[in-house]
Amino acid sequence: MHTLREAILAFRRSPLLTGLSAAMVGLALFVVGLFALATHNLRLALESVEERIEIVAYIRNSARNDEILLARRELLALPEVLGVELITKEEALEIARRDLPEFGELFTDLAVNPLPASLEVQLRPGRRDPETVERVAARARLYPFIEDVQFGREWVDKLFTLRRIGGLTASVMGAAFAMVAALIIGAAVRIAVFARREEIMIMKLVGARDGFIRRPFLVEGAITGLLGGLMALALTYGTFWVVFRYLFSVAWIPAEWAGLGLLSGTVFGVFATGLAVRKYLREV
């Protein structure tokens, strides 16, 4: 009861200070929000490119149908394989006609179909690294009726490197941004507590218990963190909306990320307040 009343009173007594520290928290978390938005979209882009990684095994004309179907089943049973599609000679021709219209006449005038049938192997997300691709390709090459296996080795390698650099950069930058945000939030909270250090010390002096003194501050810290978090979320969403509307299509960050942001803002607000208050509690 006292806790809540004091926390609310504190806002009423110094709305500017509280507003200011919430704004500082908000801006600090906004930077983190922007970073999350960018990271999320870059990741999505990379994933969509990765989806195109596939291993194509070309089948000799002499292969029997049951052999092919067995191979297909066996490949599909591998844990890293998402799907295996059989492209028959006719389908291959069809696709060639559609995708390469400039050769249209060449393909229509043919007496025999020169294109081989093939098995197109798709890997599961997260298993599209060079080693796995190699391994599955090697496995496909074992069948005697497979003439050749292709998977764009260079492309796979480059993509994988890009992904690793991206992941590392995101982690390091994310940690740095989070740390800067934490420092700013810490400073904002310290300023708010500093303004009321006399109150803390007097309470302590007349015999208030530490917990009793601390609690309203912690509630206030939580509210500051939450308000800051909401503000950051609004700013990030505003940015997202403007980019989406006027620049290009981007995805909004997952709800869990937003929730995690709010939660960490609140928790950190409480934590930083606790630390700041403790300093003055120890002085007298």
């Binding site: 006292h2 007097i202 309470m203 007349v206 015999g207 208030a208 009793f212 003194i213």
Partner: peptide, 8 residues
Amino acid sequence: AFALEVTG
């Protein structure tokens, strides 16, 4: 009164 309040 503050001193009285905070000491419960």
